[in-house]
Design a protein around this nucleic acid. Structure first.
Lengths: 157, 157
DNA sequence: GATCATAATGAGAGTAGGTATCATTCGCAC
DNA sequence: GTGCGAATGATACCTACTCTCATTATGATC
């Protein structure tokens, strides 16, 4: 909302817009008003959001355009799509725009929360994954490490 | 295909059926002929499969019943649903029926391959996740650690 | 083994998240 | 300002999946 920094993002808001603009330009996309509003809606949420979340928080945006632009942003490496099953896909900023992190996925309500692990663990995970990937002739791009369980709201049932 | 053991599964085929039967019974479900054929189709595949995979490999099974029974098997803890985005969901046996493992997910063709990491790394991952989960009031059930990239077939393009 | 209550089946209709279409509008280069 | 290609948005469409319901199978009891 203000210029104060969220600890999760390594970029200031204006740097974020600059980075998004650069990435879009690199793929011959324009950073239009609608796309800027979309980026700001995702930023304002501060956590992974669904299409309904976005449309509700930014009522001027047409759903069809939001779907198309989320796809454009994903192709450009601006956002990541998180498909946790069930209902809608979730979207959040991709890695260099948001620090590397993981998710607490609630199996009851489907909500997704970001969490951060220490670098040492990340390094050993990457090392191990690179090893098994190499064995399978697989070219690694990124890993996803998510914890599935019940969020504080849904209780331990 | 035969009675020889796949290193990925800790159970023999007959033990698998017994375990499935037990889990279904525990949820007041019957282990019918159709469900047995479904379990055998997943077993024969030896890797995560989609609904079309199953229907093609076991043509007698009606899609609507397969969908329903995959849901029953999932509720009973027999299979896990893997939603990697894109098209169909993938299914494979759940943890105690299949050794704990992770996935190489191809971002091009969507194929999913199982890989196994050493226990020490798994333990430190669980430890770290339990820590951040506790901080968020989150009750952990299981973790998913998948590597996204390009499979040997799709190349490093 | 026959009976019976109940669960499972399967064909088809229905739902929902997401995509494609296309006429209109906008953005940027000149 | 003009012109051209890209972006927009309303709507139609697609498809993965679920629901419905009449029929059939299952297994517990006798």
């Amino acid at each position: 909302m203000t210029s104060s920094r969220d600890t999760k993002s390594p970029l200031s808001t204006s740097d974020l817009h600059a980075a998004v603009s650069l990435r879009l330009a690199h793929h011959d996309y324009r950073y239009t008003r609608g796309r800027r509003r979309l980026v700001e809606a995702i930023l304002a949420a501060g956590q992974p959001v669904t299409l309904p979340d976005i449309v509700v928080s930014a009522p001027g945006l047409a759903p069809s355009s939001v779907y198309r632009n989320l796809d454009v942003l994903e192709r450009s490496g601006v956002v990541n799509r998180i498909t946790a099953g069930g209902g809608h896909a979730y979207f959040e900023f991709a890695e260099p725009l948001l620090s590397h992190h993981h998710h607490l996925v609630c199996v009851d309500c489907g909500s997704i929360e970001d969490v951060f692990l220490d670098d040492e663990l990340e390094a050993s995970v990457d090392r191990s994954l690179a090893e098994v990937a190499g064995r399978a002739g697989f070219t690694p791009l990124r890993h996803s490490l998510d914890l599935h369980g019940r969020c504080a709201g849904c209780g331990s049932g």
